[in-house]
């Protein structure tokens, strides 16, 4: 399976979070995507916790200073 990379640095501000949730929601259980951003997306992690509690796993792959990469996996049902 090829990897799924979503670089939100080129996506307009109002569409960034909808794009991330849309990508996550499209994953099958056990699949993951890499979120790429120019700052730490920790507020988004809290939003995932609030709206998709227990359904995801959040792993930092790269933490700045210029680029952040987070592997966001959808848990097995």
């Amino acid at each position: 399976m090829s990897s799924i990379d979503l670089d939100i640095r080129v996506i307009p501000p109002s569409e960034k979070h909808p794009a991330i949730f849309r990508t996550f929601d499209a994953l099958s259980a056990g699949e993951a995507f890499t979120l790429i951003n120019d700052h730490d997306p920790f507020p988004l992690r809290r939003q995932f916790e609030a709206t998709r509690a227990g359904k995801f796993k959040w792993t930092y792959v790269e933490e700045g200073p210029a680029v952040w990469r987070v592997l966001i996996a959808k848990n097995e049902a």
């Binding site: 799924i4 990379d5 979503l6 670089d7 939100i8 640095r9 080129v10 996506i11 307009p12 501000p13 109002s14 569409e15 960034k16 909808p18 794009a19 849309r22 990508t23 499209a26 995507f33």
Partner: peptide
């Protein structure tokens, strides 16, 4: 980036990623 708000960039990049 901001100029292209609402033009469909977000959904397209989701499709590209998937």
């Amino acid at each position: 980036q901001r100029d292209q708000d609402g033009r469909g960039v977000g959904p397209l990049f989701v499709d590209l990623a998937i």
